[in-house]
């Protein structure tokens, strides 16, 4: 068990290092430096800037320097906001993004499991069909369509909730709802098909033969194994949430990591973008690790393999 964990952690570190290396070279491979975008600065100013940011050092020494800085969590100032360093910008955004993402994941999976359970209980019924249709529509719609319609209807039409911002609890409702839709739809589909598969297993038939009610059979006997596919996709689901948060933070003007990331990408603030990419990678690795641990606790068969 602990050996497995160590191996996984090692793989995560390799992934994070690979992402850092790829990002570093993508940035350096760009024709033109980050300061060329506006106007050509006078040569001596340009040289001063390059010295300031060590851009004139050999590539490998820049790489090693930066690697060390990032490992110390001290990546230095942002290019476009020189008064702030990258670490503090990201640290300010992180709690906000984590709140929205965490709430959305929690809400989405809970509602999804519940809907999947209902659909599986009435397979072939109208409720089942309705849930399946809503789930497949929910998966294939672009996030900004849903967010846009909600803003138009709820904020501008009815005036119930603020259309954007990050001041109060009400301003949190719509972003979380939008972001939770995709996980909910996916969870509902997975749980439904998992439950249907499990209820045709022999243990479920035996339980029904003993006179246990269909709901109890599904809830107490089938739900646990049916959750395995859902937990197994928790990693990709978290990745989708992170990408979704970029759109949501943009639409609702939420000052989270995603907003800084997109701002940085739009005005080529490379240290900031690199920091956000690394942060997202770490988050994703943590989520995948967590999902694997949950999988181990759900499925005893995997534990047998691991030891």
């Amino acid at each position: 068990m602990s050996r497995l964990l160590l191996k996984r952690l090692g793989a995560s570190l390799v992934t994070i290092w690979a992402v850092f290396t790829i990002s570093f070279f993508i940035i350096r491979a760009a024709p033109g430096g980050p300061f060329d975008a506006d106007r050509d600065p006078p040569p001596d100013v340009k040289r001063a800037i390059e010295e300031r940011y060590d851009l004139d050092a050999p590539l490998w020494s820049q790489y090693l320097d930066q690697l060390q800085d990032w490992m110390m969590l001290d990546p230095g100032p942002s290019l476009r906001q020189p008064d702030h360093d990258v670490a503090s910008i990201l640290a300010a955004g992180l709690p906000i993004s984590l709140t929205i993402g965490g709430l959305a994941l929690l809400l989405g999976t809970t509602v999804g499991i519940f809907l999947g359970l209902i659909a599986a209980l009435r397979v072939g019924g109208w409720l089942d069909h309705l849930i399946v249709v809503i789930a497949s529509v929910g998966i294939s719609l672009p996030l900004y369509l849903i967010a846009g319609m909600l803003v138009l209807a709820v904020s501008f039409g009815l005036g119930w909730l603020p259309p954007a911002g990050w001041e109060s609890v009400p301003s949190l409702i719509m972003p979380v709802l939008c972001l939770a839709l995709a996980p909910a739809a996916q969870a509902a589909r997975l749980v439904r098909s998992g439950l249907i598969e499990m209820s045709s297993e022999e243990f479920a038939r035996t339980a029904r033969a003993k006179g246990i009610s269909p709901f109890r059979v599904l809830f107490r006997h089938c739900l646990r194994p049916a959750l395995i596919p859902l937990v197994a996709t928790l990693g990709p689901m978290a990745a989708a949430l992170l990408t979704g948060s970029l759109v949501i933070e943009q639409i609702f003007a939420i000052p989270g990591v995603g907003m800084h990331f997109i701002q940085g990408a739009l005005n080529r603030d490379y240290p900031l973008v690199l920091g956000a990419v690394l942060l997202y990678t770490v988050l994703l690795q943590l989520m995948t690790l967590l999902a694997d641990l949950m999988l181990l606790s759900l499925d005893p068969r995997l534990r047998g393999d691991a030891s």
């Binding site: 690979a18 992402v19 993508i26 033109g32 690199l274």
Partner: peptide, 20 residues
Amino acid sequence: SVPVVFLVILLASVARGSAW
């Protein structure tokens, strides 16, 4: 296991405004 989407955004940002 790599969040490719974010790398793509990085790439897009690098390509933006370049001679490319």
